[in-house]
Design a protein around this nucleic acid. Structure first.
Length: 151
DNA sequence: GCCAACGTTGGC
DNA sequence: GCCAACGTTGGC
């Protein structure tokens, strides 16, 4: 089982929304590196839910990957803000995963705390200028994050 | 293939 | 709201 970290703005879709919905299709990723990480996920992997553009930004909970290699339907919908005119149903370019809610941590692992605890090499999300919305988390680091979150 | 312009992300 | 960082676009 691998660990990942996935970002979302809580004003758009937060951990509370996932807790309510139980499961959701993680749509709207339009970055090739992030997409490549999405397509390399395996069912049963776990992903940390990171709230960006909020105060404080940080890791707020845990998800499980339910289904992989899902075509992101928003790429075909001209009315959707994630519409990609260069994509077509016979040649989709954006794939994603279905995630399931696992837990909300009792306290937010704030970006500030993450920076104090992990080096940029250990945890990509603390790298300066990092804009990637989906990234891998090494197993040892994921274990430490869970220990911190549940302490 | 270079690179300037532009748009977006996301912390602050 | 500002702006640094960075990915993408498009002219050449």
């Amino acid at each position: 089982m691998a660990y990942w970290l996935m970002k979302s703005e809580p004003s758009v879709y937060g951990i509370q929304d996932l807790r309510r919905d139980h499961t959701t299709l993680w749509d709207g990723v339009r970055n090739y590196q992030a997409r490549n990480f999405l397509t390399s996920m395996t069912a049963g992997d776990q992903a940390f839910f990171y709230h960006s553009n909020t105060q404080p930004p940080g890791i707020v909970g845990l998800m499980t990957i339910l289904e992989t290699h899902q075509v992101d339907p928003t790429q075909f919908d001209p009315a959707n803000s994630y519409y990609d005119p260069k994509s077509s149903p016979d040649q989709p370019r954006w794939y994603t995963v279905r995630v399931g809610y696992l837990e909300t941590f009792p306290t937010v692992l704030s970006l500030d705390r993450l920076k104090q605890t992990f080096s940029p090499e250990e945890l990509w999300v603390v790298r300066r200028g990092n804009r990637l919305s989906v990234m891998p988390v090494a197993e040892a680091i994921g274990d430490r994050l869970l220990a911190l979150a549940r302490a």
